[in-house]
Amino acid sequence: MRIHQDQLVVATKGRGPVEISSRVSDLLRSWQLRNGLCHLFCKHTSASLTITENADPTVLQDLEGYFTRTVPDGDRRYAHSMEGPDDMSAHIRSVLTGPGLTVPFNQQGLCLGTWQGVFLWEHRTQRHSRTVVITFLGE
């Protein structure tokens, strides 16, 4: 059993998803592991990781629309607004979607379904540089 750890720095363009599946797969190939688990961890409280549809972009639009309606920016009920009106809503969105994922892999790569992709989801309205720690445990 071998463990390899690396980091991805993901530049976001502001609120929304950034697919990172291919970048994770590239790292996996570089370590030449046959099978095991890939764990991803987002080191931020206003961005998150998720696995969702990667073929039809309207799915991503609908998900963002759901968050916009359900977790609005600048809600006067939020006490925390230290970094602006999108601050607390970004934290809530991150809690709902989560900072980590575990995906199995084999010789063919990540064991994702046909229409699945791994996404870093930026929840702030401004662009950011986000760090994802990736740990491969395999043989």
Rank of each mutant, 00 (worst) to 15 (best):
Q32W: 00
R23Y: 05
V24P: 04
E53M: 04
S30T: 07
C38T: 15
R130G: 05
S46T: 15
G113S: 10
D56Q: 03
D87P: 11
L101F: 08
V9C: 09
G74E: 12
C111N: 05
A90H: 06
E122D: 12
R29L: 10
V9M: 12
R15P: 10
F119S: 08
D56W: 01
V133L: 07
L49F: 11
Q7R: 14
V10E: 07
S46L: 03
R29N: 06
D62K: 08
R15K: 14
H123V: 03
F119D: 01
P99K: 09
W121D: 01
L112T: 01
G36M: 01
R15F: 04
L49S: 05
N35V: 01
D73F: 01
G36Y: 00
Q61I: 12
R34Y: 03
S22V: 10
L101T: 08
L8V: 08
V132I: 15
F105R: 02
D26I: 05
C38Y: 05
Q32D: 14
S25M: 09
V132W: 00
E64Y: 00
T102E: 13
Q126N: 08
H128N: 13
A11E: 15
G74W: 06
T131G: 00
L37I: 10
N106W: 05
S129P: 04
S25N: 11
A47M: 09
Y78D: 12
W115K: 08
D86Y: 07
T50E: 12
R29W: 06
L60W: 05
L60D: 05
L8G: 11
D26F: 02
V132K: 02
M88G: 12
R130Y: 06
P85V: 10
P104L: 08
V95C: 13
I92F: 04
A90M: 09
G98H: 07
T58V: 12
D26H: 11
N106S: 12
V9Y: 04
M88T: 13
R34V: 03
Y78C: 02
N35G: 05
V103M: 09
N106P: 00
Q108K: 13
E53P: 07
L40T: 07
L8Q: 11
S89A: 15
T12Y: 07
Q32V: 00
N106T: 11
V71Y: 08
W115A: 03
E122N: 08
V10L: 06
F41R: 04
V18D: 00
Q126P: 00
C111T: 07
V103I: 15
A47P: 00
Q108L: 06
T97H: 05
G113C: 02
D75S: 15
H80W: 13
P99F: 00
N106H: 10
T58Y: 00
V18K: 10
I20H: 05
T131N: 04
A90F: 12
L60A: 14
F67H: 05
D26N: 12
Q107C: 01
V59T: 13
G113V: 02
P17I: 01
L37F: 03
